[in-house]
Design a protein around this nucleic acid. Structure first.
Lengths: 345, 345
DNA sequence: TGTTAGCACTCGCGCCTCCCGAGTGCTAAC
DNA sequence: GTTAGCACTCGGGAGGCGCGAGTGCTAACA
């Protein structure tokens, strides 16, 4: 059943009032504050209808109405208007983003903090994961007798490196042998291509240098696979500004969840895979029990060609969706620019 | 004025009861639960004395006493007995620490989580900083035409590296020239030695390669200086288990403070510089206003020779000092071992 | 037929009051 | 010096009350 234009207006007014005040909203208030040209009584009738249809709820008989999850869903899908950041907000944002960044993780976590400051909600970020990237090259740099730096470059243009210590001294001959062996045999492959059987064969083929090869290859595999995405959480304390979390048990539940990287990483991995755009999960839609009365707005960002990470904002279901979505869109664009600038592309 | 043996016993009993229950403790309870062979009335008299001397406080007339900061201070200095972790606790600890670690920051943050789990308090870690380290060597690895990896090794045995992008293509000749120039002119120096004037001279001397040199040297400087220590915070939600933080405003204050890396880093830098051992700041002793009614227990850990980081536990002033100190000592020892194992020393 | 005014009814919330009990300090007796 | 007894204090929880915001229904109006 379609909602009449009038019902839509009233529903929007209710949701926006509730988002702003966190108090159940009554018919009189709507009549007074929004210029709908309707009396409280008429609005009351419409509200009763909207409740029957499932868009509104009553916390108790003699209070106003609050939006249901279904109400919020309809709001974000059909009613919500984009909010434009004010000039001051934009200026502040610009300032924080013009800092010089040099490392991927640094930028991303910094941006996460910026978003928290703008939206007043906690922000979670999943650093990019690279599952299907292929090996472009491997360099082994001998730093000391038993210490080398292994540099792995993937075709997504990402460079990873790690120090590796050996139990025995290693000479340049060994390094060269292993390097060229890898160049010949592994370049162009992705994680799935390098099977354990293949690895065994390689180790045998290398004879004395097998141990060295093993260490290097296992790091290469790790770079190509990178399965447990690293996450960063910024501005977590912002959640406490919302009256929904003034109950200490509710707050504890939230922070316990957020404290665990695995939880957050798992949650993010469930989200935003469907669309390229911004995706919104309201309350129980996230499928994560601890987050049953929070909403999450997630955007994907791209690093270079193949890599993508996720950046999301967590708030109560009574979140200021319009503002959050606009801020996230706006920043996500700039994030792309900055990342590309860093990667020199 | 010296405390009599009897006063010490009573003070200890009061503090330990208060730590356990978070409720003001009364004379009757002490008489009943601790076998001191004294009546409530006697204990009452002693308590009045202890209050006069500043070791105890009364929240209001008709409640029991709670320890003052001075009381806690005396407790940790003179009364506290080391707590021994139970067999189960040790086993659990061992299990979490036996995981294979490969990267410094990974270990340290993991250990931080472990400590939080054992102590039920939040843990803060400052990753090692290296202020007085001297440059041992610099390697520049050309990855692509405009992309190089700069590897800096300090005499503390620490290797840092970063990708550097150039605006123009760079060839091997340039790389070699800059490398050998740095080797000749900068090796053996620490951050303070490399003055701006000296840098200017160097840039001029290098002529065409000046820009390249500039980029590399600024990274070198950064490695040698490393002024804003990176921090990690684990188990922050644990703070909410303490009734002191069931007031939402108090909780918000704590989380806002903790949310900012700078705050935490600054706080840690104020602490534990005096002794090699574990240092305890009670309430206002930390000198940080937001932390006025929390206590912080900090230990230093060593990485290799010259590097040291800090690891600290934050709780209410009514913190279980005995347990926290023992856990921290115990884990800090193991941390040293693990770090050394990783560094292969 | 849709809209509005009026009115009785509901019910959460804040406020006040009162009482209980834990704890103290003092005094007097042992 | 220690202890028992007692009057006094005061925070906090329980219960009662009234206010006010909000509803749903009915009846009148355009």
């Amino acid at each position: 059943m379609e909602l009449s234009q009038r019902k839509r207006m009233i529903l929007q007014a209710i949701i926006e009032d509730y988002i702003a005040t966190a108090e159940p909203v009554g018919s009189r208030n709507i009549a007074k504050n929004h210029d709908l040209g309707l009396s409280a009584a008429t609005i009351r009738n419409e509200m009763a209808d909207l409740e029957d249809m499932g868009y509104l709820e009553k916390p108790h008989t003699s209070a106003g109405r609050i939006p249901s999850e279904m109400g919020y869903r309809f709001y974000v899908d059909s009613l919500m208007q984009r909010y434009s950041l004010t000039v001051e907000e934009l200026a502040g944002l610009q300032k924080s983003m013009d800092r010089k960044y040099d490392q991927l993780e640094g930028v991303i976590s910094e941006i996460s903090d910026v978003i928290s400051k703008v939206t007043h909600y906690p922000t979670v970020v999943a650093f990019p994961r690279e599952n299907k990237s292929r090996l472009r090259s491997v360099r082994i740099v001998l730093v000391e007798e038993k210490l080398a730096l292994v540099v792995v470059v993937t075709d997504a243009g990402v460079v990873k490196n790690r120090q590796v210590r050996f139990s025995n001294a290693v000479d340049y001959a060994a390094i060269d042998a292993v390097s060229s062996f890898i160049s010949k045999n592994l370049v162009g492959l992705c994680a799935a291509d390098i099977t354990p059987a293949r690895m065994m064969l390689m180790y045998e083929a290398m004879g004395d240098y097998g141990e060295l090869l093993k260490v290097v290859v296992s790091f290469v595999m790790e770079c190509l696979r990178e399965d447990c995405a690293k996450v960063y959480i910024g501005g977590a304390s912002n959640i406490l500004n919302n009256p929904e979390f003034s109950d200490i048990d509710r707050a504890r539940e939230f922070f316990s969840f957020i404290d665990s990287r695995e939880n957050v990483s798992k949650m993010l991995s469930l989200m935003g895979n469907d669309s390229d755009d911004i995706s919104i999960k309201i309350g129980s839609e996230s499928g994560v029990d601890e987050m049953r009365d929070t909403s999450i707005v997630v955007a994907n960002y791209n690093v270079g060609d193949k890599l993508r990470g996720k950046i999301g904002i967590i708030g109560p279901t009574r979140m200021d969706y319009a503002r959050v979505v606009s801020s996230l869109e706006m920043i996500n664009d700039r994030l792309g620019e900055i990342l590309n600038r860093i990667l020199g592309q």
